[in-house]
Deep mutational scan, measured.
Amino acid sequence: KLPPGWEKRMFANGTVYYFNHITNASQFERPSG
């Protein structure tokens, strides 16, 4: 399970990334916590 605010998303080319809808942060590494 991801930390609060984070969700797993995917680009059109299939690349997975993680987006935080609270802070609008995005990253390729899975957030810890």
Rank of each mutant, 00 (worst) to 15 (best):
G5A: 06
A25K: 13
G33Q: 12
T15L: 12
T23P: 00
E29L: 08
H21L: 15
V16A: 07
P3E: 06
R9N: 02
G14W: 03
A25P: 01
H21E: 08
K8G: 05
N13P: 02
A25I: 14
N20T: 01
T15M: 12
K8D: 02
T15G: 08
Q27M: 07
H21Q: 11
A12M: 09
I22K: 08
K1T: 14
K1L: 14
A25E: 15
A25F: 09
K8P: 06
P31I: 01
V16K: 04
F11Y: 14
N24G: 15
G14Y: 02
W6M: 00
T23G: 02
H21Y: 15
N13T: 06
S26I: 15
M10D: 04
Q27D: 02
F28M: 11
P31N: 01
F28N: 08
Q27N: 04
S32W: 12
F11D: 15
F11N: 15
P3Y: 04
N24S: 10
E29Y: 08
Q27E: 04
T23E: 05
S26A: 12
I22N: 10
S32G: 13
K1I: 14
V16P: 08
E7L: 06
R30G: 03
E7K: 05
G14F: 04
R9P: 00
F19H: 07
Y18L: 00
W6G: 00
L2V: 04
G14R: 02
K8I: 15
E29K: 06
A25W: 09
G5W: 06
V16N: 03
K1M: 13
I22E: 10
F19G: 01
P3I: 04
M10L: 11
M10H: 10
I22A: 08
Y18T: 00
N24R: 10
R9A: 05
F19N: 01
A25L: 13
L2H: 01
F19T: 02
P4A: 12
E7R: 06
L2E: 08
R30K: 10
E29V: 08
A25Q: 15
Y17L: 05
A25M: 14
L2F: 04
N24L: 13
F11M: 15
T15W: 07
E29T: 10
Y17T: 02
F19Y: 14
P31H: 01
P4M: 11
Y17F: 08
P3A: 06
R30V: 12
H21N: 13
A25S: 11
T15E: 12
P4T: 09
Y17A: 02
E29A: 08
N13H: 04
Y17W: 08
F19K: 03
S26E: 10
A12I: 08
S32K: 11
E7W: 05
I22T: 09
S26R: 12
R9Q: 05
T15P: 03
T15Q: 14
P4E: 12
F28Y: 12
L2W: 04
R30Q: 09
R30F: 15
M10Q: 12
N13L: 03
I22S: 07
A12H: 09
F28H: 07
F19V: 07
R9S: 03
N20A: 01
Y17S: 02
H21A: 12
P3K: 04
M10F: 13
T15F: 08
W6Y: 01
Y17E: 04
P31M: 01
R30S: 08
F28I: 11
N20K: 01
E7M: 06
N13E: 06
S26L: 15
P31Q: 01
Y18V: 00
K8F: 09
V16T: 09
P31R: 01
F28Q: 08
R9G: 04
H21I: 15
K8W: 08
Y18S: 00
M10P: 02
E29R: 06
N20D: 04
E29N: 09
K1G: 14
N13S: 08
F19L: 05
W6R: 00
E29D: 11
E7A: 06
N13Q: 04
Y18R: 00
V16L: 07
P31A: 02
W6E: 00
P31G: 01
H21M: 12
G5D: 06
E29M: 08
F11H: 14
K8S: 08
A12Y: 06
A12D: 11
G14M: 04
R9L: 09
M10V: 14
P3N: 04
N24Q: 14
L2G: 02
R30I: 13
N20G: 00
K8T: 10
S32H: 12
F19A: 02
R30T: 08
V16H: 07
V16M: 07
